[in-house]
């Protein structure tokens, strides 16, 4: 598509467009399809962004941290704790190590046992939060040393939790983009069919235009601009409706996180502007291709 073609599209040719009747089922079909697809695209986009944010959040929150669990003992619990903290301080790659206080441990167990758990009277393992340096530590070496100095201590570097969660979130994000691709392909397919139907329905108009010396480009232009504008208008309507629908979803407090994440915070909202634009581009390409092909075949 040349710059001149884009200018022509924006400028339009009133006379060329007047030759084709404005009304018809193809007009309604194109607007409806573009609106419906844009509505779905809003949710696919929101889903993709939410999954992306979740993956990033999990990756950043769990990355470079690990937990050391020291089993509860009947003897003085401070001895293994102090030993473990000393070992961690001496381990290269460990930035900091901090034993969780009773309140923090209580908060972790609260979802399962309630707020009235008498933590002090129960043999609860002591947890140590480890923050790694950028280079990380040698987990195998640390485990070997802990096995010798703090028997029963379990080092959890979160890998077995983090990787599947990030992979799952990444797949959801990928699915979102695949859905957007399918939506775009559907717009192209339906607009192509609608354009072909419009050309068939206006066979006499085309015949007359040919008779008076209209080129294929001139005839195609009469259809292309109209279909492009319908594609943009329909998609704009669908995008606005879709955006409004995301505000009707429960907030993250009520829905527990993911549904509430189907929003467009900050600059991500700018992506919504692209939906009508891309719908217009899809309609333009599909109609122009269908029109020129049909005109050539029917000559």
């Amino acid at each position: 598509m040349t710059f001149a073609a884009i200018l022509d599209l924006i400028k339009g040719d009133t006379q060329a467009e007047r030759a084709v009747p404005r009304r018809g089922f193809t007009a309604r079909l194109t607007v409806f399809t573009a609106a419906a697809m844009a509505f779905l695209a809003v949710f696919a986009l929101a889903l993709s962004f939410a999954a992306g944010r979740l993956a990033d959040q999990w990756a950043s929150e769990l990355a470079q941290t690990s937990t050391l669990r020291i089993p509860a003992t009947v003897d003085d619990p401070l001895v293994p704790l102090e030993t473990a903290l000393r070992v961690l301080q001496e381990t290269p790659g460990v930035a900091s190590a901090r034993a969780l206080d009773p309140d923090e441990q209580q908060a972790l167990l609260e979802p399962w046992f309630g707020p009235d758990l008498p933590l002090a009277t129960l043999p609860i393992p002591q947890l140590i939060e480890i923050v790694e340096t950028e280079g990380g530590y040698d987990a195998a070496g640390l485990r070997a040393r802990l096995a010798g100095e703090v028997p029963g201590a379990v080092l959890d570097d979160h890998t077995r939790w983090r990787d599947p969660l990030i992979a799952a979130a990444s797949r959801v994000r990928l699915l979102g983009w695949i859905a957007i691709g399918l939506i775009a392909a559907t717009i192209v397919a339906i607009v192509t069919l609608a354009a072909q139907a419009a050309l068939a329905a206006n066979a006499q108009v085309i015949s007359v235009l040919r008779l008076v010396g209209a080129t294929d480009t001139y005839i195609a232009r009469a259809f292309v601009r109209r279909f492009t504008l319908r594609g943009i208008a329909g998609a704009a309507l669908g995008t606005i409706t879709g955006l409004a629908a995301t505000f009707l979803l429960p907030t993250s407090d009520v829905a527990g996180g993911f549904l509430g994440g189907l929003r467009f915070p900050g600059v991500t909202a700018l992506w919504l502007v692209l939906i009508p634009v891309l719908s217009g581009v899809a309609a333009f390409v599909a109609t122009r291709w269908a029109a020129l092909r049909t005109l050539k075949e029917n000559s």
Binding site: R210, L211, V212, G213, T215, D216, T217, Y218, K296, S299
Partner: peptide, 13 residues
């Protein structure tokens, strides 16, 4: 095809 269309402008039918 475009040349034929242009030429047709010189022929009234």
């Amino acid at each position: 095809r475009d040349e034929i269309a242009m030429m047709r402008r010189r022929v009234g039918v």
